[in-house]
Design a protein around this nucleic acid. Structure first.
Lengths: 225, 225
DNA sequence: GGGTAAGTGGAGACCCCCATCCGGTTGCAC
DNA sequence: GTGCAACCGGATGGGGGTCTCCACTTACCC
């Protein structure tokens, strides 16, 4: 997180530095965010704006005035989840054991991702810079890369692990989350366990196994679109 | 391949047992299928029917007359890919080495899936019985289960591999295919290689690795919706 | 308490997609 | 060649979704 961790306060934080918000307007804004969180989670990123407004008991105009674009709404709604990912990585960076740190960060980020189908979509979309959250995303990916470097240096992570493998992991995890939302938390844990198993350095590759293809910088490919 | 490999013929096979089709009608039908294959691959399963018609140079009515529902069109368009999956499994079932058979089937099915984003969606959707192709899908899953059984009996596949892990694999693979279509073939191969690596029995799990969660019958969950 | 700027909700313009209907056209059997 | 059944494509109605405009209401500052 940044300096603030207001994210557990019952009332949501106010918008960035808007001059001020009238009491009724603030109330409506919070109500919209609550409702949007539910709807986005259960009906996906493309839930009609009108549905959000209706459930929040406000007019469409109010919704659009507060959040001019769908993107703005989504960004605000999933700020907590993004923060949780950043926090997980930051915490792992303070962990002494390089493998535990690596494993913990991967597990937690994937768990957050699989825990909310809506956030999953937003998180993946962030890779395409469709949302303005790349700052936080970069922090996550840089942190993960550092964790990978440490684990590799310590001889715990296989040497041919590539930066792009994080992207691989996240895309794979997104498939689980997108296709089977109810089962996602459990299924995701299992997928991650399997993959972490493969990532370990202390399991020498058997002779006849197919060597992974040359690392491909998926992350770069996606960002350069 | 099954017995037939008509799938390389320049002209598509005629519809099942419709009485007969006038020459111009048949020509249009084939043209629609060609165009639809391209559009579905590059723009996803929800490409507007009107766009298909326009690109094929026919009216919407003609498209609807030939393929009354979008499902019917998709089913026909991806019949080849479905057949390729069935063929891959059937071929693997004749392979002598249980591990090679298992590995080969998994690799080929995933490769077909990752090779075409449109087919990927259709394939995954088939799990939800949104399309009428469950017959072929069942054949694939049953075949895979049999291959898993053999590999396990031979002591090559880890004992805690679950039937639902195929679903896990396919969902994960679908994430790759859906999010990064251009990179999907390569990225998918790498993902599959990692996972196959984890599935091997001859890599004893290290003491501190997280045991995979209890197998969850994802497949059943999805089918029972 | 009163003036005012901020806030409100609903109506409606606009766009896209689906699916059907129907008057005109054409391949094909004879 | 000719008649007709099959075929064609554009027009059309219906349903939804996005986003804006505007006449009305209300919280807040003095």
């Amino acid at each position: 997180m940044g300096a603030e961790d207001s994210r557990l306060r019952p009332d949501r934080r106010a918008p960035a530095q808007e001059p001020r918000l009238r009491a009724d307007a603030l109330h409506n804004r919070n109500r919209i965010l609550e409702v949007a969180a539910d709807l986005l989670a259960e009906r996906g990123l493309d839930v009609p704006m009108a549905a959000v407004a209706r459930h929040a008991g406000v007019g469409v105009a109010t919704l659009y005035r507060r959040f001019p674009t769908r993107r703005a709404l989504i960004q605000e709604v999933f700020a907590d989840q993004f923060a949780a990912c950043v926090a997980a990585v930051d915490e792992a960076l303070t962990c002494l054991d390089p493998w535990d740190a690596f494993r913990g960060a991967v597990e937690q980020v994937c768990a957050v991702q699989a825990g909310n189908p809506g956030f999953n979509s937003a998180f993946v979309a962030a890779y395409f810079e469709e949302f303005g959250i790349s700052g936080e995303l970069d922090r996550v990916t840089c942190g993960l890369n550092e964790l990978a470097r440490r684990a590799k240096d310590a001889g715990r992570l296989r040497a041919d692990f590539a930066t792009s493998d994080f992207t691989l992991l996240i895309m794979a995890n997104s498939g689980i989350s997108a296709q089977a939302p109810e089962a996602a938390p459990t299924a995701s844990r299992r997928l991650v366990a399997y993959l972490l198993d493969s990532f370990r350095a202390d399991r020498a590759a058997p002779a006849d196994s197919l060597p992974p293809p040359a690392p491909l910088d998926l992350y770069d490919i996606l960002r350069s679109r």
